[in-house]
Computed example of a mutant assay.
Amino acid sequence: MGKSNKQKLSAAQQATLLATLKLRFEKNMPRHKGLDWEEVETRLKANGDKLWSLQIMEETGGEPDVVGFDKKTGEFIFYDCSPETPAGRRNVCYDREALDARKEHKPADSALDMAEAMGVSLLTEEQYRALQQLGKFDLKTSSWIETPAAIRKLGGALFCDRRYDHVFVYHNGASSYYAVRGFRGALKV
């Protein structure tokens, strides 16, 4: 995936994506109580680079949806809301440093590099816990989350999942990767 999130969607791609997002919005109203689709759509149409990021979130299996509104910035907040961590973003280590440190059996990419290329950020622990208030996610998979610098400096990285009806935060070596671990993105529009 290239590092250009400045790409634009064609009119047909925009229409298809907006229809998908609208349908998801309408089917999942508890995720965004008090928000109006027309306002979201207007904002999306005015931000082509963000539409491109949402398209990549969609293409990689993220099922992005509106989960809130940031009153400070006036932006709508989207998270990946797929039941399991997005299938097109699994089997990746945490970051470039971890990827470069692997001597053999390197994964194809890292979560932070992919997120940057997509124009999104990894969910923080707080954001991940907020997402879990909207439904039950990652019952069979896990998702890398933004890791504090002090932990990363020592070679670790954090990930989350939901088991036994509780959200758990774990640690692993940043260079580890698994077929059931990916990452969820956050995007403000």
Rank of each mutant, 00 (worst) to 15 (best):
W144N: 03
Y178S: 14
A87V: 14
E39H: 13
R152M: 07
I56S: 04
T42E: 13
L18W: 05
D95Y: 00
A150L: 06
W144I: 07
L122T: 06
P64A: 08
I56C: 05
L21V: 13
L134C: 05
K71C: 01
H105L: 15
G34M: 10
Y79E: 02
L158M: 15
T60Q: 09
K153T: 12
A108N: 11
A19G: 09
V40T: 05
G173C: 03
K106V: 11
F69T: 05
P64C: 10
R129T: 03
N91T: 15
K188E: 11
C81G: 03
P64R: 04
A46L: 10
G156L: 06
R152Y: 07
T124F: 02
G74E: 04
D36M: 05
K140I: 01
K50R: 15
K136E: 11
D65W: 00
D36A: 13
Y170Q: 13
S82T: 11
V169A: 07
A130F: 13
S4G: 12
R89G: 02
R129M: 02
C160F: 05
Y79C: 03
E39Q: 15
E41Q: 15
D100S: 11
R129D: 08
C81N: 08
Y164D: 12
S142T: 09
D165H: 10
W144V: 09
K71F: 03
G185V: 04
P107V: 11
S82V: 02
V169C: 14
A174I: 06
P30K: 06
I56T: 07
V167C: 09
V167F: 05
D65S: 15
E39R: 14
R163H: 14
V189D: 09
G74I: 02
K45L: 15
K6R: 14
K45V: 07
E41Y: 03
K33F: 01
T20C: 03
H32A: 10
D100F: 11
Y164H: 10
R96N: 12
A19T: 14
C160I: 07
K153A: 15
T60V: 06
R181Q: 11
L123K: 01
K3R: 08
R43P: 00
T16R: 10
C81D: 01
E75Q: 12
M29F: 04
G135C: 05
T16Q: 12
G119I: 04
G48Y: 01
W37C: 04
T60G: 00
S53I: 04
V40D: 00
M57E: 12
D138V: 01
V189H: 09
P86V: 03
T124L: 01
S176L: 07
A186G: 09
F78Q: 04
V167A: 08
P86Y: 00
W144T: 08
Q133F: 01
C93D: 05
E26D: 15
S10D: 09
R24N: 12
A87S: 13
L99C: 05
R24G: 11
N172S: 14
R162G: 01
K33T: 14
K103L: 12
G61A: 11
A98V: 09
M118S: 08
E63W: 02
S53C: 07
A11Q: 14
A157K: 02
